[in-house]
């Protein structure tokens, strides 16, 4: 997707370098959707190459893809953009597996992409909302560490919530 020609003259490009050496050239307006990058740009100003030793190229690419969509949609100031963003967010998280969700959440959190953290935590929440305890343990690979009888005791207190 090409950006509009009127803005290209003023848009600065930043180079982001992932942990595995993969680099991304992104418009400043896109990268600053991430709080951590925004702070660096504001504080240090002149740097054009930013190294991100905690994010690998694959996931940094996905995070930046999300930023780009949101930055593009927000420049066309139109009320429909909220809807477009919502629709696109839905697509973005639709088929993410646990491993990708984990790495994206870690990356978004590390880069202070608050909106993206929101979207991803909401996605995980929707995956577990109606689940049974056993399913939660299965999903998260958690082993019960209660002493015998303790779990039954807790269940008894709110037995209706288990129905």
């Amino acid at each position: 997707m090409s950006s509009s020609s009127t803005t290209t003259t003023t848009t600065r490009l930043l180079m982001l370098k992932a942990s595995d050496g993969v680099t991304f050239e992104v418009e400043e307006a896109v990268a600053t959707k991430l709080g951590a990058i925004n702070n660096m740009v504001e504080e240090e100003g002149s740097e054009d190459l930013i190294c991100l030793p905690n994010v690998n190229g694959k996931f940094l690419g996905m995070v930046l893809e999300w930023c780009k969509k949101h930055a593009n949609n927000n420049t066309n100031s139109d009320k429909g953009n909220d809807e477009v963003n919502k629709w696109w967010d839905k697509e973005f998280v639709m088929d993410l597996d646990q491993n990708t969700l984990y790495h994206l959440l870690m990356a978004a959190d590390y880069l202070s992409g608050t909106e993206l953290v929101d979207l991803l935590t909401e996605k995980v929440a929707s995956m577990i909302r109606g689940k049974k305890v056993e399913e939660i343990r299965e999903t998260f690979k958690i082993k019960s560490d209660f002493l015998p009888g303790q779990e039954e005791e807790i269940r008894k207190k709110n037995s209706w919530a288990f129905e």
Binding site: V133, R137, F140, I142, K143, S144, E151, I154, N158
Partner: peptide, 8 residues
């Protein structure tokens, strides 16, 4: 309330 008994 249910998830209280996932683990300690």
């Amino acid at each position: 309330l249910r998830f209280k008994c996932v683990c300690k």
